[in-house]
Design a protein around this nucleic acid. Sequence first.
DNA 1: CGAATTTACATCAGTGCTTTATATATATGC
DNA 2: GCATATATATAAAGCACTGATGTAAATTCG
Lengths: 173, 173
Amino acid sequence: MTAPPDAPGGDRAPAPGTGAAEDLTRLAVALERAASWVRRTTAPAEWNLVALSTLDALDTAGPQRVSDLVARESISQPGMTGLVARLEAAGLVTRGPDPRDGRATLVAATEEGSAYIRMRHRLRAGAVAAHLEALSAAERHALLAAVPALTRLAELAPDTHDATRRSRTEEGS
Amino acid sequence: MTAPPDAPGGDRAPAPGTGAAEDLTRLAVALERAASWVRRTTAPAEWNLVALSTLDALDTAGPQRVSDLVARESISQPGMTGLVARLEAAGLVTRGPDPRDGRATLVAATEEGSAYIRMRHRLRAGAVAAHLEALSAAERHALLAAVPALTRLAELAPDTHDATRRSRTEEGS
DNA sequence: CGAATTTACATCAGTGCTTTATATATATGC
DNA sequence: GCATATATATAAAGCACTGATGTAAATTCG
């Protein structure tokens, strides 16, 4: 990884001349602080971050098995079972048998669940919009320009610290 | 503001007039997913996100009172009192009297606490670096360029859903 | 100055989410 | 069919969070 030189696009580069490692650390800190902001601005009485992330995954990627969600969200299997049970009780997801494996349980977002997570996204968008007014035009543009990269970063393997590694690399099929 | 044409995976102008709301929603979703990634890649056995954020605030902004931390982290005052007690027991912070207000307690990061949070930042930087290799140069640049905006966004008032002021239980007359 | 009110924090009791350990059902290999 | 592995559910327990309440210090007002 090398610090990108003068990048095209006319945006100001992150202080040319500073070390690449320092840039990386600043990015890491910025991501952690942004995560903290997301947590702080999430209504406490509602579903927690794990639940919202799970619901978002089901809405985006379609039905998944409990073990898939466990691997994705990095919580324990009983934890995910309990979460799915609560989401089901609230009518946000449904549980059904997996036609390909009688042991597995397929979890799918209901129409209400999809509507809920999209409503949450709109709420978040409103909060973001309220804060964007305090930023400069360049900063606003920089945030919007970073959306694809942020999304891809979040999609990448959730390993890093790892715990129960499942070597299964098989995809949907 | 320059509006570069569509570049693969990287720069994308806000597209004035066309789907600004959708851009906002995409940004909101990207932030939530990035927050989810931060949470997933934080070792569960370690300190939780509130603790890390509190420690980061103490390391960055210096000693603070419990009530300041409560306002900043959006958790309850008993929650913060308990968290500070745990951090103190671990040797990461110290509690002392506020010379300007005998009722208050000043919380400060210890040298060990500062070293710990900086170690966490380096760990995060390593995780980010490992994933940046999978991104395009444009995406990497977009992320680095967004650092100041992300930081400022996270600094802005943690309002949104409120909770600060609680109505008084006594309605005089 | 002294009493009442407000503020800052600690303590208590309760709740919810998480974990590890274990059980049940299905799949797979012999 | 039996033994083993896998996928999920259930049970028991721990801990962090919340609301309610208590205590000490500061501020306000007579």
